[in-house]
């Protein structure tokens, strides 16, 4: 009989224990990082079809500007790296935000490549990738060479007038297609210290397009002298364009 009472007491205790409210656990919201790419011309949003005057006095407009950005990575304070996105096509005016959940912790650096890194660039077959991949035939939106192997890293297309005549129609084509292993550039931000634990944070990467078409960085991209390159046809212009491109990036943590 005593055993029965003992058993009942234990059961009642268990039931009471199970009914007791557990202390509330703190739910830490996910840590999210967004990298937002935007383009500016003299501090204002850079618009397609808008006519601008560059540092050399050339009037130009962009009809398209598409870029491969790769290995977008945040570096933690312990030196470990968190990949935000492997490969992305960024056009700087709409498809330009990349968001990913990241582990909690403090971060110090943002880095990414402009172009496609060597091991995924040469001797690859775009047809092998599913259409959802930006490296595929469909996903890359024509950003690959066909007579040669590899991807086009940056494609700036538009029209210009280099005669200096006010109001003259823009008739001269601009076609800067930069892309081979030598055109790959890596951007590494200045150091910062941001704890992303439980917060969403946007990192702004701004491309100052006016600085690409200026001598400010020591590499002339003067479209009055040369406005067309398919890299192989004018490697110097492709190199200068990519060098200026890298130098024209600013980062706001």
């Amino acid at each position: 009989m005593n055993k029965v009472f003992l058993l009942l007491a234990v059961m009642i205790a268990l039931v009471i224990a199970s009914c007791t409210n557990e202390p509330e656990q703190t739910v830490i919201p996910a840590s999210k990082a967004t990298v937002r790419f935007s383009a500016l011309w003299e501090g204002q949003p850079f618009e397609m079809q808008q006519v601008y005057t560059d540092a050399f006095g050339n009037r130009l407009r962009a009809d398209g500007f598409l870029n491969f950005i790769s290995l977008i990575t945040l570096v933690k304070d312990d030196g470990s790296e968190v990949l935000i996105k492997d490969y992305a096509l960024v056009n700087f005016y709409n498809a330009n935000e990349i968001t990913a959940e990241v582990p909690a912790g403090k971060y110090t650096t943002l880095k990414f490549g402009i172009g496609v890194p060597r091991d995924r660039n040469k001797d690859q077959d775009p047809a092998q990738y599913p259409s959802s991949s930006v490296l595929s035939v469909a996903g890359s939106q024509g950003m690959f060479w066909v007579w040669n192997t590899g991807y086009i890293f940056a494609k700036f297309e538009g029209k210009c007038d280099t005669t200096g005549t006010d109001g003259a129609e823009l008739l001269t084509p601009i076609a800067i297609h930069a892309g081979d292993d030598a055109s790959y550039r890596e951007f590494v931000s200045q150091s910062f210290s941001i704890d992303l634990t439980g917060i969403s944070k946007t990192f702004d990467v701004k491309l100052n397009v006016d600085q690409i078409f200026s001598p400010v960085n020591g590499n002339d991209v003067n479209i009055a002298l040369q406005a067309i390159t398919h890299t192989s046809t004018n490697p110097d212009l492709a190199t200068n364009f990519m060098d200026n491109y890298l130098a024209a990036l600013t980062f706001v943590p």
Partner: peptide, 24 residues
């Protein structure tokens, strides 16, 4: 420049002086 016979097919398809289309 083109590594395989498979990828070679993209060249004439896309060349504006040849078949002048695109694969998609």
């Amino acid at each position: 420049g083109v590594p395989t016979l498979e990828t070679q097919a993209l060249a004439p398809l896309h060349d504006s002086l040849e078949m002048g289309t695109n694969m998609m």
